[in-house]
Simulated scan of single mutants.
Amino acid sequence: MKKERLTKRLALFTALTLTGAMLAGCGNTDAAESSSDAQTGVTADTQASAGDASADVVYRTLDEIKESGTINIGVFSDKNPFGYVDENGEYQGYDVYFANRLAEDLGVDVNFVSTEAASRIEYLQTGKVDVILANFTVTPERAEEVDFALPYMNVSLGVISPDSAVVESLDDLTADDPVIVISGTTAETYLTENYPDLTLQKYDSYAAAKTALENGSGVAWANDNTEVIAFALQNPGYTVGIPELGSTDTIAPAVSKGNTTVLDWINEEIKALGEENFFHADYEATLADTYGSDYEDTLVVEGGETK
């Protein structure tokens, strides 16, 4: 009898011991999981912070650009005579001439980054380029997303069409008369706001828009008047029926929002270049063959001072 009670007590003791061990083990597991969760939480918070930071505007300061030895400048590669790649694979044009001087005076090499109109703001915000010099018209909407430096050129909108059916007023067009525009340009914005009933044929690049005009995909092409005038001068059979549409605006370099070191340097550079009539020299080297001398004083802004 005593032996039986002893056996039962031993069994109970063993069971309690095992249960305690299991509970202790579970407690340790929970603690480990809690510790792991805590560590994961810190990592998650850090990643969230990193994610938030990456969502913000990214840019390099002037000192960082100097230290790297290279400035990344966004230009067009298909918009002759402002930014294009020639038969030798070299970037040329009015904006490129200016970009080369910026790099020279900063004491760094220049890396040209080909951009399309709709990508200009994105390329700045993501740090793909330090500066945009791609016929970037200054508008209040764009100024909310990027910082514009002083202007170096005047511009307004224009409309080009075939000689066989010259468009002299957009009021004469109907929804059956598509007008070619390039996405992300002031022409798209202006026509959308002021001529909502027009049908817009949208393209991503200047080359595509020009091809569309040549193929008759639209009755006319609306774009910067500098561009459509150049196209008409270089391609017989087309007329700029509307040489000025809307207000006269300015073209300026753009940097990432808040990049004051680069912005301030470019502004001072533009003022200094104005003292040597740099932008008139730029015009004569890159635009005179297209426009002649008649447009020089109208288009060029010297030293950041508009008339």
Rank of each mutant, 00 (worst) to 15 (best):
T7K: 15
L12F: 11
T14F: 11
L18P: 10
T19K: 13
T19P: 09
M22K: 09
A24F: 10
C26H: 06
C26P: 02
A31K: 12
A31S: 13
E33R: 15
E33H: 15
E33L: 15
S34M: 15
S35M: 13
T40K: 13
T40W: 10
T46R: 15
A53I: 05
A55V: 08
A55H: 08
Y59R: 09
R60I: 07
L62V: 01
S68Q: 13
T70C: 14
T70R: 14
N72M: 15
S77E: 07
D78N: 05
D78I: 07
K79E: 02
G83A: 13
Y84Q: 03
V85G: 04
E87F: 09
N88P: 01
G89H: 00
Y91A: 10
Q92L: 10
Y94T: 12
Y97H: 13
F98D: 04
L102V: 12
V110R: 06
S114E: 02
T115S: 12
S119L: 06
E122N: 10
Y123C: 10
K128A: 14
V129S: 03
D130F: 04
D130H: 05
D130C: 08
D130T: 06
F136H: 07
A143F: 00
E144H: 00
E145G: 00
V146I: 07
I160T: 01
S161M: 06
S161T: 05
D163G: 03
A165T: 04
A175C: 00
A175V: 00
D177V: 05
P178S: 08
G184N: 01
T189Y: 00
Y190V: 04
T192C: 10
T192R: 09
N194D: 05
P196I: 08
L200I: 08
Q201L: 14
K202G: 04
S205A: 03
K210S: 05
A212E: 09
D224F: 07
Q234I: 07
N235T: 15
P236I: 02
P243R: 03
E244P: 01
E244L: 06
L245S: 03
L245T: 04
S247E: 00
T250V: 10
T250H: 03
T250I: 06
I251D: 00
P253K: 05
G258F: 06
N259P: 03
T260Q: 00
D264E: 03
K271R: 07
E275P: 14
E276H: 13
E276T: 15
E276N: 14
N277G: 12
F278K: 10
F279G: 12
D282W: 07
E284W: 09
T290W: 02
E296K: 13
L299K: 07
V300T: 09
E302T: 15
E302P: 09
G304I: 09
T306R: 09
